[in-house]
Design a protein around this nucleic acid. Sequence first.
DNA 1: TCCTAGGTCTTGAACGATCAAATTCTGATA
DNA 2: TATCAGAATTTGATCGTTCAAGACCTAGGA
Lengths: 325, 325
Amino acid sequence: MEKVTIATVARRAGVSRQTVSNVINTPDVVREETRERVREAITALGYRVNQAARQMRTGRSRLIAVRIEPARDGINGSVLDRFLHGLTDAAGLAGYRVMLYTAADDNDEIATYDDLLSAYDLDAFVLTSTHHGDPRTSWLAERSVPFVTFGRPWGAPDMHSWVDVDNAAGTAAATEHLLAAGHQRIGFLGWPAGSGVGDARREGWHRVLGPWGPSAASTDGVQGGAEAARALLATDEPPTALVCASDSLALGALQAARELGRECAVVGFDDTAVAQAIGLTSVSQPLAEAAARCMDLLAELLDGRAPSVPATVLLPPSLVLRQTA
Amino acid sequence: MEKVTIATVARRAGVSRQTVSNVINTPDVVREETRERVREAITALGYRVNQAARQMRTGRSRLIAVRIEPARDGINGSVLDRFLHGLTDAAGLAGYRVMLYTAADDNDEIATYDDLLSAYDLDAFVLTSTHHGDPRTSWLAERSVPFVTFGRPWGAPDMHSWVDVDNAAGTAAATEHLLAAGHQRIGFLGWPAGSGVGDARREGWHRVLGPWGPSAASTDGVQGGAEAARALLATDEPPTALVCASDSLALGALQAARELGRECAVVGFDDTAVAQAIGLTSVSQPLAEAAARCMDLLAELLDGRAPSVPATVLLPPSLVLRQTA
DNA sequence: TCCTAGGTCTTGAACGATCAAATTCTGATA
DNA sequence: TATCAGAATTTGATCGTTCAAGACCTAGGA
């Protein structure tokens, strides 16, 4: 079982190296009959293109990089995990591979770009966790490195392609579900104003209920959620249902309600493992699809058939009904 | 900002290409003074080795592949996630990069090996979720592809290097903790016999308690855990504490205890997001360290300084105390 | 019959690094 | 001073692929 190169195939098929290369990359310039003969030789020999050699000549690696972040509060970590899985699948289908890297912060990440680009000739990046004033996108854009973000460019015009989930639509659907179930006072438990995602989730709830509705804010976490929920539930006319910006907050709310002996419907966000485990109704992001769409956009960029205007994709989340609402 | 190659550096330092290459790969054969001059040129120009070119000549890619699995029951998914993060970090420090792939089953995975090896010249694989009669290890071993498993070769002799966590020690520690807290009747809630990991976790509990102790088994999941726990708690002399093979089972046990109005201490396994969220005491695997050790072993294999006997590393888990025990 | 255009295929060079072998330099010894 | 071993450096070839350009063949038109 020797090394099979393009020359081995060429010899067996009785053609030149270049013809074999053409069969692989631009089949339509090769005559039908020759093409078949070469294809036969390729499968018979089990030939596979050597990516390193191809890359050296073309300057393209068919490699895409994604940052893997530590599961921050743990509870929401699996979101990225599922996205990664979807991306790896989609990339594989499109003939690309996913390479991982870690970074402590934005600047560290930018330093890594430099390294990955010059050492590995990376074709593109997929960025997650975009935020206001993100320095990463401008760095990449300035050097015209192809990239797509999962998460819209908060607070900036659309200078690049992105895929995002319609957070507001998710909380809106949750709120409507609660209304339909007969709830009159539906509260919102969210994060402090200023984060794009958090604000959008509050917006969806607000959009459905109109001007009124009790709401509270806390940084993410079970503890914070419980405290904020206690405050809301201790008022004169406490809400009978709570829409929450995350499963962590929702879990805190459930604990608070139980302590106080109050009936309170709760809906979380992200459909994490925790929600599945404890039967929490939650808004689920279509992560596999989001990943696939990211790959689609990247493939467009890389094939040079990119639209002049950045493409943007907004996916609707879905409500997963369980016991808590 | 043109492309900087080894020739650019050579010209600037006034030496030949090969000398630059030597400074990078075998610095000790270059005279001190020359070495410094070349190093200066390298940093001044911001030169970075082109991996594709190096790979074509050496046949080594400095790339390591890991399979990313879908978060199976969701609740335990983050274990792999954290391992991956640790591996990416450790690989980066050792000058390697991690590439991802997905596979539907063992055979699919083997087909992917073939592809990755011939197309990308992958240097090594890290396998997770090893099990009895795993066909992957023998496939790789036959072709003498370097690899390390996270998880020991269940039911087979040590034919390759592996890193694993001492599952039995984990449940033993949990059991001892419960004994010290004054519990007399400590039960075990595990998986059906036959899985290496599950059996080891039961073993640890059994080792501490001796012959006696109520135990039950169920396939993993909250539902199953609740049912099995109900059965245990409904006996004449119910256990006052339960050691569980997973956080899912533990969560089920907690729910069963609450339903029945019983006090019952519970310890889970894996310290997942769920455990953190609901305050479940759980056995925590040192995943970052496990990943680092995997990388160490791989580096040894790849540098050719591999020991004749496969290296095996068994890491002790730790008990994370929270409210439930 | 000759020429040309288009389709098909082949040839040599190049990508950027490392290997192997050849060459030059250095300093010590006779 | 001439010689030589060993250290330091250079040269040419090579890895497997694709690019650019050229060669060959066939059919159609003048």
